Each structure stands twice: as C-alpha cells, then as structure tokens.
Amino acid sequence: MRTRAPVEACQLCGRHIDLTFHHLIPRKMHRRPRFQKQYTRAQLNAGIWVCRACHNGIHERHDEMALARDYSTLERLRADPQLQKHVAWVAKQRRR
C-alpha cells in the first residue's frame, strides 16, 4: 500500500490537503478475465492521488464496473460532467 503521495495537491480539485490513492481500474475488477487480458499488471495498479472529498465523489457517482470501463484515466474522470460539478464544489471547500 502506498503511504506517501508523490504529488502535493489533489489531482482533481487542486487543494493542498491529505491525499488518498484512487486506482483508475478498481481493485475489485483486477481478477476479472476481461481486465486481466486487456491490461498489464502495471496498468491495473495505476492510479491518481486525490483528496478524500474527491475520492468519495468518484465512488458516489460511479460503480466499480463503470469506473473500470469508462473512467480509467485521469482525463476521462476530468471530462465527466457529474464529477466536474462535484470537483468545482470541493475546490471551494475549506480544509478540514
């Protein structure tokens, strides 16, 4: 498990706050043959560093299959209109 983020700000909202690691392809999907055939181990373990509020927002808006299938890159997450609205709101929040 990663303990220290290599970046200093959330990769979605840009806030300088404690970060969590978000797997771009959720770990729950790693065992499925479709994903094992399509991605390398490094690709399956790739992720981004986000604040807890953004991380929660990602998982509240999409289930694991949708994340793995449709939102497996930072660019795709940033392009999602639902998530854009959430991230804009989070960016305005004070650090807790």
Results as ranks from 00 to 15, higher is better:
H59L: 02
V50L: 05
R27H: 12
Q43H: 05
S72L: 02
T73F: 06
T73Y: 09
A9T: 15
M1T: 12
M65Q: 14
H22N: 09
R76A: 15
C54S: 10
H16V: 06
K85D: 09
H62E: 10
K92Y: 00
Q84K: 14
W49E: 09
C51G: 13
V90L: 07
M65H: 14
M1V: 06
A66W: 08
G57P: 08
K92E: 13
F21T: 03
V50W: 07
D18A: 10
R41L: 08
E8C: 02
A79E: 15
R31S: 13
P33K: 14
K37G: 09
A5V: 03
K92V: 00
R32G: 00
A79I: 01
C51P: 07
Q43C: 01
H59F: 03
H55I: 00
R2A: 07
A79D: 15
R4E: 15
P33R: 14
I25F: 04
A42C: 02
Q36D: 03
R61L: 10
I58Y: 11
R15T: 07
L67Y: 07
E75K: 01
V50E: 06
R52L: 08
I48E: 12
A53S: 12
K28I: 15
M1F: 06
F21W: 15
N56F: 00
V50Y: 03
S72C: 12
Q11A: 09
R78E: 13
C10N: 07
W49V: 04
T20I: 04
C51F: 05
R2K: 12
Q43S: 06
L24M: 11
R4N: 13
R69S: 10
T20A: 12
R61Q: 12
T73H: 06
H62A: 08
D18G: 10
R94A: 07
D18W: 02
M65T: 14
H55L: 00
D80C: 10
L44P: 14
Q38F: 01
H30N: 06
R15S: 11
R2S: 09
R69C: 02
P6M: 11
Q38I: 00
S72Q: 13
L67N: 06
H30T: 05
R78A: 13
P26Q: 12
H22G: 01
V7P: 11
I58R: 12
H55P: 07
G14H: 05
A66R: 15
L19Q: 11
E8S: 13
V90F: 02
H86W: 09
L77I: 08
I17A: 12
W49H: 04
V87W: 06
I17R: 13
M65K: 07
A91Y: 07
P33M: 05
P26R: 11
I17E: 15
Q38D: 03
H86P: 00
E64I: 00
A79T: 03
K37C: 02
R95W: 05
S72Y: 15
P81K: 03
W89E: 15
H62P: 00
Y39C: 01
L19M: 08
W49S: 08
R76I: 01
R95Y: 07
M29V: 01
R95V: 08
R76W: 06
E64G: 06
S72V: 00
V87N: 11
A68H: 04
H86N: 03
R4G: 03
G47S: 06
Q43I: 01
C13Y: 02
L24H: 11
D18R: 10
G14F: 03
A68L: 02
D80K: 04
W49D: 11
V87C: 04
G57S: 13
E60P: 00
